[in-house]
């Protein structure tokens, strides 16, 4: 059984070439370069947030929580814009979706912070953080996608002569 392939953020920046049988790195130079620049920017923004709002030892990791929730919200808006509203330059999506947002949000710090909270004897905080991030991240991306679709539909309806 195959299920429909989801629209992924890491979709290649193709230029009309059939990418299925070609090596995955062929023609990927520009995409890799913009993903690297975007990733550096996203990781720096996350590091800056951690410096501005340092986490309390044993406390709820609010900074990483908000970084991930905000990143999920922005990707929802962005993906609707680039797949349903306008067709941007093929490198916009790898730069911002894969690079900036992928570099900004983090799954590894999320998992290791839960491990650390459990290890330091804060099981309730660990469990709350585990569940709250998952629920808030999924809710953020869902709400952002729904809201962007609604706004763009109203905007395009408003432009048509009545």
């Amino acid at each position: 059984m195959t299920s429909p392939r989801p629209e992924t953020v890491d979709e290649p920046a193709e230029h009309g070439a059939p990418a299925r049988r070609a090596p995955v790195w062929r023609g990927q130079g520009p995409a890799v370069a913009v993903v690297a620049v975007g990733g550096a920017a996203g990781a720096s923004a996350r590091y800056g947030a951690a410096l501005l709002w340092p986490a309390r030892t044993g406390g709820f990791p609010w900074t990483t929580f908000w970084v991930n929730v905000v990143g999920c919200c922005v990707i929802g808006v962005f993906m609707v814009l680039v797949t349903e509203v306008w067709a941007p330059h093929p490198l916009v999506r790898p730069f911002f979706g894969t690079g900036v947002l992928g570099g900004f949000t983090t799954f590894s710090t999320y998992a290791v912070d839960i491990q650390r909270l459990l290890d330091e004897g804060h099981p309730r905080t660990a469990l709350a953080y585990l569940a709250a991030t998952l629920v808030a991240a999924l809710a953020a991306v869902w709400a952002a996608v729904a809201l962007t679709r609604r706004v763009s539909a109203r905007w395009s309806a408003g432009r048509e002569p009545s």
Binding site: P4, T8, V9, A50, N68, G71, G97, L101, T105, T106
Partner: peptide
């Protein structure tokens, strides 16, 4: 902070999860 933080992603993870749900999966 740099490598593992940028290698992993929560935004793509949640977006792909939403797409699966939207596609009836």
């Amino acid at each position: 902070t740099g490598l593992c933080g940028a290698l992993t992603t929560y935004s793509t993870f949640s977006y792909e999860t939403l797409r699966l749900a939207e596609n009836g999966a």
